[in-house]
Design a binder for these strands. Structure first.
Lengths: 234, 234
DNA sequence: TCAAAAGTGTTAAGTTTACACCCATGA
DNA sequence: TCATGGGTGTAAACTTAACACTTTTGA
């Protein structure tokens, strides 16, 4: 094999995962109080190094499945973080991924093992390195995508009420939505299907449970439950 | 310094730049017919390895300024490409960036030196490695951004006609726009300012030259010259 | 004088917003 | 019986889309 590259430096390449969950009307992140070095005792995202023979996407999936035991998690790349001093230990380029998962799919035993817990977005502590910046960019990326692609259902159980769905969108975009207008839009989306199940846990009357039908969605690919936002300061 | 990382592998980290230009009603890319190894004689994006002591953003800026002599180029990260075998020579993780530049700012002497040329988007040849995939993702990223943030002015000269601006949007989104509706929207954007200059090169009558006023834009941050598109197949 | 690009308004259709009350039930 | 969350429609405001002719002037 010829070797044109050997004069160039090599770096550690890591992945970090911004894991979103939704509970009690708020977005949460799965964070880790590190019980290992470096930065022992500090809060961080879940991450790990990319192995030889493993793509960065695979590394992110591995980190997620090691942590949760789940293999089919919705995941998307946020981007690379490549500042020289981002990790004070050594030069590490990290690729951030966000993941969306139903908070109930994740058992609390796993939480203990990894010293992890769900923290409300409004209570995110100082994280190590540039992890707070990763969270901010992940949230922007996710909001952009969730406004026109139905990824948000990954944050809900298979069966959900319209109140839950609305509350999820309000949590993501941080503003209230009108109930009647919201339901009118949902009603036009045939792939958000009424089931004959009822949720009796959150009201006396009970609420109809709905379900997202992905193959029906793929026929129209039309989805918009939230207005497209103007630019933030860029 | 403690050394928690040494058991993990290191990789080459590269940057690749998708450089957009606009000319004669079409988007173009600045591509390179490689006069060096590896992949000598093949077409590729402009790229380079990230140096020690240099962030990935800085590496991308360096690649762009080495190539063009320009330092203030609009540039944004597309994302990391981390497949194991993406570079058949050796494991390389590459961070893609797109750049927008006014095709006239780039002199043809530079083109020669780098064996580079502007190729119409509709004529992009097979590129090395995963560079075609990078181009596709860069275009999607750029379209998403250009629909609600006025980045497209980076593709035009400082003074431009409304016909040029419309033609640019038609090139980016690949569909025709109604002239009167387009001009009505532009007229509402006070930061797209009429100047008292005229362009006489493309019509006998002459067309009024406009100019984008960034600080005026920042007061409202409202911009939309193209409808937000539905999902492509994702 | 005519070809070629620049410039200009109105109307209908569709979308978004605002808004308030009745329903069902378990405690 | 009443407190709680579930469910429903209409009208006004706004936005988008469709559409065709006149102007200017250099060749």
């Amino acid at each position: 094999m010829s070797d044109f590259y050997s004069i160039y430096p090599k770096f550690h390449v890591a992945v970090d995962c911004i894991i979103f969950g939704f509970d009690k009307g708020e977005l949460h992140l799965l964070l880790q109080k590190r019980n290992f070095q470096p930065a022992l005792g500090e809060w961080s995202l879940m991450g790990g190094f990319v192995n030889a023979g493993e793509s960065t996407d695979e590394a992110a999936k591995r980190v997620l499945s090691d942590l949760t035991g789940l293999s089919k998690i919705y995941m998307e790349q946020v981007g690379a973080f490549g500042e020289v001093e981002r990790d004070p230990g050594e030069r590490v380029v990290s690729i951030a991924y966000y993941a969306l998962l139903n908070i109930r799919d994740y058992d609390s035993e796993q939480l203990q093992v990894h010293n992890a817990c769900w923290i409300k977005m409004s209570d995110i502590p100082d994280l190590i390195f540039d992890h707070n910046a990763m969270v901010a960019r992940a949230l922007e990326t996710m909001k952009g995508k969730a406004s026109h692609i139905p990824i948000s259902f990954n944050l809900l159980p298979e069966y959900f009420t319209l109140t839950q769905l609305q509350s999820l969108y309000e949590a993501i975009y941080g503003e209230p939505l009108d109930k009647r207008n919201f339901r009118k839009k949902v009603a036009e989306m045939d792939y958000i299907e009424k089931t004959d199940h009822m949720d009796k846990t959150s009201s006396k009357r009970g609420a109809i449970l709905y379900r997202f039908n992905d193959s029906a969605y793929r026929k129209t690919m039309k989805f918009r439950l939230f207005k497209v936002s103007d630019a933030s300061i860029v």
